[in-house]
Computed example of a mutant assay.
Amino acid sequence: MIVNRWSGLGLLVSAMFALWLLLASPPSLLGVDTGHVGMVLLITTAWVSLFAVSRLPRDAVAEAASPGEWNAWIGTVFMAAAVAYLVSNVDAFRAATVWNDPVTGRVVRNLVALLIAWSVLRGVLARRWSEAVTEDERDREIAAKAAGWGRFGLVAFCVGVAGVLGLSPQDRLQWASHLVIANLLIFGLMLSCLLEYLGTAVYYWRDRH
């Protein structure tokens, strides 16, 4: 139990340090891209955590949460990290003048790496539950409700962006370059996914309690 407690604390500290590297540290330190290091550390922490969970008896994992809830919580964490990372680097996109700007390219590569890692983790989770029933009527009902969170977030975001672009004087839209607008649209999609994952996790949590 002591080993498990200290292992969990170590993983938590590692994840917090990775998030600090991603969101609050200098862009580079001693010539090293801190964002890339943080992304690698966060992905590694997630892999180690998943490996630790996979070593537990399946009954113990199922008692803690259903497959759908595990998927929702992990998706929420990954999407929240991706959204926060994009927001923390918004000044880089505003300053960029060409599509192949090296600074924005670094941010995009880190985001793509994070989303690819999440896709792989989803596949691993699916194999973990391949012999169990992972979806029933309750899961489908929760998925339908949570999808409403995502749709509402995307619609509200699009209406807000359209209102700002349509109603603001032209001299106040110097920031709205093609690159910024393109990344705003991507941000809207990421925010929609985050809300859907969060809604799914909340509905599972409420149902379990």
Rank of each mutant, 00 (worst) to 15 (best):
I2M: 09
L9F: 15
L9R: 15
L12W: 05
L12H: 06
M16A: 15
F17L: 07
A18G: 09
L19A: 08
L19N: 03
S25K: 06
S25C: 12
P26F: 02
S28D: 09
L29P: 00
L30S: 02
G31F: 03
G35K: 06
G35W: 13
M39A: 04
V40C: 08
T44H: 09
V48L: 15
L50D: 01
V53M: 04
S54E: 05
P57L: 10
P57W: 04
R58A: 12
D59T: 06
A60C: 03
A60S: 09
A60V: 02
A62M: 11
A64S: 15
G68V: 14
N71L: 15
I74Y: 03
T76I: 00
V83N: 02
N89Y: 00
F93A: 02
A95G: 01
T97A: 05
V98Y: 10
W99P: 06
W99Y: 14
W99A: 11
N100H: 12
N100G: 05
D101Y: 02
V103A: 05
R106T: 07
L111I: 10
V112M: 13
A117Y: 04
W118H: 13
G123D: 13
V124L: 06
L125M: 08
S130P: 11
S130Q: 09
V133Q: 14
E135Q: 14
R138V: 13
R140P: 04
E141W: 00
E141K: 00
A143G: 05
A143E: 15
A147C: 03
G148N: 02
R151E: 14
R151A: 15
A156F: 14
A156R: 08
C158A: 15
C158N: 13
C158P: 01
V159S: 11
G160C: 01
A162W: 10
A162P: 01
L165N: 02
P169Q: 07
Q170L: 04
D171Q: 05
A176N: 00
H178E: 15
V180M: 03
I181F: 02
A182F: 10
G188C: 05
L195Q: 01
E196A: 12
Y197P: 00
L198M: 11
L198R: 01
T200K: 07
A201W: 14
Y203T: 09
